[in-house]
Write a protein that binds this DNA or RNA. Sequence first.
DNA 1: TCTGGGGTCCTAGGACCC
DNA 2: TCTGGGGTCCTAGGACCC
Length: 418
Amino acid sequence: MKYFCLVDCNSFYCSCERVFRPEVRNRPVIVLSNNDGCAIAFTKEAKAVGFGQMCEPFFQLKDRIKKHNVAVFSSNYTLYDNMSKRVMDVLRGFSPDMEIYSVDEAFLLFDGFNDYDFIEYGQKIRREVLSSTGIPVGVGISTTKVLSKIANKLAKKNKGVWVMITPEEIDRVLKNFPVKDIWGIGSRSAIKLNMLGIKTAYEFKMYQDEALIQKLLTKTGRQIQEELRGVSCLAMEEAEDKKNTGTSRSFGTNVFDKSQLKEALAHFATHASLKLRRQNSVCYSMQAFIHTNSFQEVPQYFGEARVTFPSGTSDTLKLINAAHKILDEIYRPGFAYKKAGVLLNHIVPRNQNQLDLFTPDPNDNEKLNQIMDLINKKYGEHTIKSAACGIHNEWRTIADYKTQHYTTSWKDLLRVKV
DNA sequence: TCTGGGGTCCTAGGACCC
DNA sequence: TCTGGGGTCCTAGGACCC
């Protein structure tokens, strides 16, 4: 018998901040999105005083934040990524088969773990992750991925671990579990199911007209239904290279000037190409876009275009160049631009790159990129970059409440006073 | 004044092939 | 009155996730 275990970090971003800021451990904590735009992570103390709606604009929360003495942080992804790696390293010790599902979640497969006391094993996972990293986690264990997700939600309210194995245990839970909270059932699908009279996970599981489910919710919905019945359809997955990647940001201020947009796109192209090189891949096409602030009642414009390359590339300079060509095509003067981005598509491993007959040496800048990556790795990101990225970057995103890079920068190491 | 970013999978429909 | 059949590949758009 195989069992799926889902380990999920509690309020992950907030918990990361708390590790290095003991003074906020008993206070409600909120972490903001890029540009300090909206709230994206909340501790249970914050939820208890009414916060918790994903992506509520920060400026609308300010009064309530003051009233409830909430600690607020800008997002610090360098820190979260590093803490995530530490958590995953600990989890790896609990099963030979692990799938990292997101920055704060992992599935563990328990295959051949017969006669295990799963409740105790779950508690052991929680103790070890907490003592090694400072991050609290919840553990859900059941017979399929979808069921283990549900178990994990129950764990939050039940000492951090929830195990459901027998059909009776599972049905008891499913009868009280809203269909809209099932992993993979979003708001659209929930409305469709409600119209069929399906309100709980149990009713979904028992619904007999499978062809109709297939029609309304496609293959994905049918698989979820089977998983609720205990039939495992979603296997553990290997980490794979990204098939698409990109970098985009909202600006800290409105941007009118084409030269500013050029700088921003150069930055995004630089960052995206680094992601490509890290997974040792090349891309055959790039999309870039610029757009205005859709929340404001101002003239709107959404410009987007694409270029393709004769052979795959991950060269920063080539990609900056391509982004600038797209900008020439899509830029319209007079608009207040608020966001821009670069997307890289049709990605293949570098060793599968199809070279172009008419380009004798397509990787002419490979050495240059390698050296630049090395310098930036050693001395910090942006130590060396293309002049196209500019110096002042008036468009740069706002992060007024950002903590240090405690775990990834020597100069930010925590100081302990004796 | 102020509203995130980065992904995946599935399907329908068009273009194209023999 | 009548106009083939079967297939693949690509893309845009929808839905969902964290």
